[in-house]
Structure formats: structure tokens, C-alpha cells
């Protein structure tokens, strides 16, 4: 993921899949990770497309 850099380490973030826990459910999600410090982020695209929809669905909103 060349477009993102870790704010602290200035390293280019890498694509990664990692587990996310929510409402007692654990599943993997596509995100980005700093190869040096291990900080993990979700991109806006994933948040809008998946996280927001899943939150609404899981909380019956």
C-alpha cells in the first residue's frame, strides 16, 4: 500500500488481513499495517463499505 505511510515510523504501510472483534464475533478484515511498529488501520473504503454496513446490521439500526 504505497499511498499510506506510518505517521510515527514513516514506513510505507503494507496490505494485511487481521482479526477484528465486534459484538462477540471475530472475523478477518482487509487493512493496512506498519511493518516496523505494527500499527494497523482500516482504509476509508473498507470502513464505509463493510464496517459501517455491518455495524448497522448487527445493531439493527
Amino acid at each position: 500500500m504505497d499511498n499510506w505511510q506510518c505517521f510515527q515510523c514513516k514506513e510505507s504501510m503494507l496490505d494485511d488481513k487481521f482479526p477484528v472483534h465486534y459484538q462477540g464475533i471475530t472475523r478477518t478484515i482487509q487493512g493496512i499495517k506498519c511493518p516496523r511498529c505494527g500499527a494497523k488501520y482500516l482504509t476509508e473504503d473498507i470502513v464505509v463499505k463493510i464496517v459501517n454496513r455491518q455495524e448497522k446490521a448487527l445493531e439493527d439500526k
Binding site: 472475523r27 478477518t28 463499505k49 463493510i50
Partner: peptide
């Protein structure tokens, strides 16, 4: 068509 395809065990699959 809304969330795309993904592999087993992912949040996309659960959604």
C-alpha cells in the same frame, strides 16, 4: 455487488 467477494472467515463473508 455491494461489498465485493472475500475469503472464508472474513467480515465480508459474515456480512
Amino acid at each position: 455487488q455491494i461489498v465485493g467477494q472475500d475469503e472464508a472467515g472474513s467480515w465480508i463473508e459474515f456480512f
